[in-house]
Design a protein around this nucleic acid. Structure first.
Length: 952
DNA sequence: GGCCGAACGTA
DNA sequence: GTACGTTCGGCCC
């Protein structure tokens, strides 16, 4: 590699617009307007002519916009919406740009879902990292963000320079020219653009802020974020108001103007090598369009770019590929196989500093913590692994050895010193930290005073892409081992193979360092590889918005909620346990008395035999297990029809046993000894629809429906002087159904604050009473859950025929509902997934199953998923905005503790209830905006008190 | 010790 | 009829 490589990236799309406006109208012999094409052709000619000249291209590609829609349209549906139609005499010239490029035998690259700017950014970055110089042929100000020098060349390369060439003005644009234009260096151009907006692309920016003010703000504050953060403390002014008002728009704009630098490259860099331009097919093209002066130069051979006429075989291949783009399918990034022997065990501060420096340079690092427990809030830190690339990973042991006081501890850096060294890296805005379920690592490190940010999470990225996507034999989970197996065909070392399982398990800190390094560093390595593979798919597959705007920002919010925990009154739970135990004992004796023998009431098998074999009640065997059914419905039937006293007693016994074992006993055991509070763990990938799920303990199913169960909620209490505040969305799923299915009567009823089930009863039955309202309520829910005549019949206690008549009537009164169901199912059958209003996908691979039960099950789930999922998206958006909103209102003391699907629970000083309620209601009520403007209001009900029960 | 189904708590 | 998680008994290895 003697000479420096120099890649020219031609921004073809923007060029043609400028050429059109600058050049006189011109038509070819067929009468097609070709003025812009001519301008474009002369530019390519000139570039090709510069081959082998100083600063001329050695490699060249033309980048085009594939179509009007990119991932930015998902983020902001108004993106480029104002762009006027191109002039009539320009339209036919677009396809000719590709013809012209092919005539020069040059690669022409475009990708669905990506704009030319993103591909240019990605190629520029990739080339510069290899030490190539890059020239972007364009005048587009957005691309000026890219000018400069690569700060993280791949190992062994000198940094490559990136500049721009405006062929219209014949001007080179380097860092000084960018500063001259924007007043800030290239890396801050994006911040300026985000503030000033762009009327052509319809990037909103902040209303009233133009280039001058934007530049001034960034110069003063250093960054967009800093300027926005400083706004509340500015002295009262129009500008302050505009900044506060426009914060969200500015942040949105920042995302819109951000160029994607990590797109998968449709063609390898080496394939862009610029060889001599063959005479054909260029001559034919020039002749066809009547570009005779160029044709003469080509024929004359003087100053023409065609020095050789032999067609390079590879070039021919490139040309074919460029001519027939294969949709958005891309080659996977190539990565070497996992090699666990390649990892380093970092045992000295010197080596740690080396890794930290390299991580800063790489600007992204995969991270994994090893601990003593799955509970992030009790675990102690055993070690940290980092990865910077495939097989480029290390493990930093921090807490190995020590169980055996007499054994010598392995050599390792002191934990506090290591964490102090890592803290700037882990907290640096400039370095992306990638984790697999990084919320866990966030919580572990938060307990050591480290606020890890910014983060990406491969588990959540996988979920955004592939929720529900499991086929027979292939799991649909998002755990690392499963993802690694599915995507790389590699099985990482299993934790249980390192630490054992059950009684024989040893803590990770007892694992020998060589073995620990293999395991831990491999996890970071695999996480890095997963990110490289999965993250580019977000943009390609239309899931950027849901990930970037909803799930990703939610990670630190939920982590904080988990750390907050909620106080429970142990003594109150203990009293309830006692009461329940006594009553359970009494009932047990009565049941045994009636049965005439002792048996295990909690065994459905034994209970069934007692009820149906011994006592002779009528009831059928059921299912493949061959067991009698003894569920609630059956026991209630026995109690009512056969007047069986034992049935009611078993029901009472079951209720109390459930409450005692699952709640009053288990919750006491779940109290964290350090905090005295209960800390649940939320899963962000637990429910296919996008809902959160809660485990260890599950705080999303604390009883509320029965008086006796409700007592458990009285044990959830605030600290002295505080109160608990519960804010619920009222009927959110029905409201969303009314909006999404477009049901005018239901929308009106919600707009007027009417009783929605009563309104439904009026529509269906013509009058409202207790009975018709109850039936209407049942039907409303049946709709949300994907209706079937059998299911509805069970709930209504009628025959399936009658239920079907009811469904027909419902569809007749609310035709939008039927249209929604049909359209949703058609969409899922066609695309394979459903989508929420915010673009979250859920896959339904069994939607066309030959098995009827399976297929119908998928259909019901597919009808429900957009509604349940949109509701989940909305409350998640509210959660993301909640803490900043409270902070802005001076309510930094308010803590968000729990989420229960349509409810948020807070703890706060009693004196702040009024002020906080206002903020909470506003944030929740407006959570769909500005992305989605619902036709129905989102009503929020708020209560507070000295227990969770009292807050309702 | 680990896994599965039945049962039941929530939205 | 949707979406979850936990407990228990019963059974397997």
């Amino acid at each position: 590699m003697a000479d420096k490589q120099h890649l020219y990236l031609v921004d073809g799309s923007s060029y043609i617009f400028r050429a059109y406006h600058r050049l006189p109208p011109l038509t070819n012999p067929q009468g097609t307007p070709v003025g812009a094409v001519y301008g474009y052709t002369t530019m390519l000619w000139k570039l090709a002519d510069d081959l082998h000249k100083a600063d001329g291209p050695t490699h060249l590609a033309v980048i085009l916009d594939a179509s009007g829609v990119s991932f930015r349209n998902e983020i902001y549906d108004q993106y480029k919406a104002n762009r006027p139609e191109p002039p009539e005499d320009l339209k036919p010239q677009f396809p000719l740009i590709r013809d012209a490029t092919r005539a020069f035998s040059l690669p022409c690259i475009e990708e669905e879902g990506l704009e030319a700017d993103d591909l240019i950014a990605s190629y520029a970055r990739a080339a510069a990292k290899r030490g190539w110089d890059v020239t972007i042929v364009s005048g587009d100000k957005d691309l000026m963000q890219l000018v400069g020098e690569e700060v993280e060349p791949d190992d062994g390369f000198a940094p490559g320079k990136v500049d721009m060439l405006d062929t219209m003005k014949n001007q080179r644009i380097g860092i000084p020219e960018v500063i001259e234009k924007f007043g800030v260096p290239p890396e801050k151009v994006g911040d300026v653009l985000a503030l000033m907006g762009d009327s052509v692309d319809n990037v909103p920016g902040i209303f009233g802020i133009g280039p001058k003010t934007a530049t001034k703000l960034i110069q003063e504050h250093g960054s967009l974020q800093a300027a926005l953060d400083a706004a509340p403390d500015m002295k009262k002014s129009k500008l302050k108001e505009r900044l506060l008002e426009g914060r969200e728009m500015a942040e949105l704009s920042r995302v819109l103007v951000q160029l994607k630098e990590d797109c998968a490259l449709p063609m390898q860099l080496d394939d862009l090598k610029l060889d001599a331009v063959p005479k054909e097919p260029l001559a034919e093209f020039l002749a066809h369009h009547g570009f005779t002066s160029l044709l003469k130069r080509l024929d004359g051979g003087t100053g023409s770019p065609a020095r050789k006429t032999d067609l390079h075989p590879a070039k021919q291949d490139n040309q074919a590929r460029a001519a027939a783009p294969e949709g958005s399918r891309q080659a996977l990034p190539e990565m070497p196989p996992v090699d666990c022997s390649a990892y380093e065990c970092v045992q000295s501060m010197e080596r740690l500093e080396h890794w930290i420096a390299r991580a800063f340079a790489a600007r992204k690092v995969a991270l994994d913590t090893e601990t003593s427990s799955l509970d992030a809030l009790q675990a102690s830190l055993t070690g940290i692994s980092l990865a910077l690339g495939p097989n480029d990973a290390c493990y930093i042991p921090l807490g190995h050895g020590g169980t055996d006081m007499f054994a010598e501890k392995p050599e390792q850096i002191g934990r506090d010193a290591a964490l102090a060294a890592l803290k700037p890296l882990l907290e640096s805005d400039a370095v992306l930290k990638i984790g697999q379920n990084i919320k866990y690592d966030l919580n572990v490190l938060a307990r050591h005073g480290i606020a890890v940010a910014p983060v990406d999470d491969t588990m959540i990225i996988s979920f955004a892409l592939d929720a529900g996507r499991s086929m027979d034999g292939i799991g649909g989970g998002h755990g690392m081992d499963e993802l690694c197996q599915r995507h790389f065909g590699h099985t990482p070392i299993a934790f249980k193979d390192v630490c054992g399982t059950g009684k024989k398990a040893i803590p990770f800190g007892e694992v020998p360092l060589d073995r620990a390094t293999e395991y831990a560093a491999e996890d970071a390595d695999v996480t890095w590889r997963l990110h490289r593979l999965l993250h580019p798919r977000l943009a390609h597959e239309g899931s950027t918005r849901i990930y970037e705007r909803v799930d990703r920002p939610l990670i630190p919010v939920v982590a904080e909620m988990e750390r907050n925990g909620i106080r429970v009154d142990r003594a109150a739970l203990a009293r309830l346990s006692e009461e329940f135990a006594t009553r359970i004992g009494e009932i047990e004796a009565e049941v045994h008395e009636i049965a005439g023998q002792e048996f295990t009431i909690g065994s459905p098998k034994q209970l069934g035999e007692i009820l149906f074999d011994k006592m002779g009640y009528k009831g059928g065997r059921k299912g493949k297990s061959g067991q009698y059914s003894t569920d609630q419905a059956m026991l209630e039937k026995l109690a009512a029809q056969d007047d069986a006293p034992i049935a009611q007693k078993v029901l009472d016994w079951r209720q109390l046993s459930k409450l005692k074992s699952t709640y009053t006993d288990a919750l006491q055991a779940a109290i964290n000894p350090e905090t005295g509070r209960v800390h649940t763990s939320y899963s962000l990938v637990g429910a296919q629809t996008g809902r959160l799920s809660s485990t260890d303990p599950n705080l999303q199913n604390i009883p509320i429906r029965t008086e006796i169960g409700r007592q458990i909620r009285t044990a959830f209490v605030p600290e002295a002087g505080n109160v608990l505040l519960a804010a619920d969305y009222s009927q959110i799923e029905l409201r969303l159904a009314a909006h999404m299915a477009d049901v005018p009567p239901l929308k009106e009823a919600f707009a007027r604050g009417e009783d929605i089930h009563a309104r439904t009863a009026e529509e269906l039955f013509g009058h409202v009473d207790r009975d018709t309202r109850a039936r209407a309520k049942t039907i409303n829910f049946a709709i949300l859950y994907g209706i079937s005549r059998w299911g509805l019949a069970t709930r209504l206690g009628t025959e399936p025929d009658e239920a079907q008549a009811m469904i027909d009537r419902y569809f007749e009164r609310f035709p939008g509902i039927q249209r929604y169901i049909v359209a949703t199912l058609e969409g899922v059958r066609e695309r394979g997934y459903s989508q929420t209003l915010f673009g979250r996908k859920t896959w339904f691979p069994r939607i066309s199953s030959k098995n009827q039960a399976e297929r119908q099950g998928s259909e019901r789930a597919a009808i429900n998923a957009p509604i349940q999922g949109t509701s989940a998206d909305i409350i998640k958006r509210a959660m993301v905005r909640m803490l900043p909103a409270l902070q802005d209102a001076g309510l930094g003391n308010v803590k968000m503790l729990l989420q229960v699907h349509d409810e948020l629970v807070f703890e706060l000083p009693e004196s702040e209830v009024e002020a906080a309620s206002k903020v909470i209601e506003k944030v929740m009520g407006e959570a769909a905006l500005p992305a989605i403007s619902l036709d129905v209001p989102l009503a929020v009900e708020i209560g507070h008190g000295t227990s969770w029960d009292a807050a309702h």
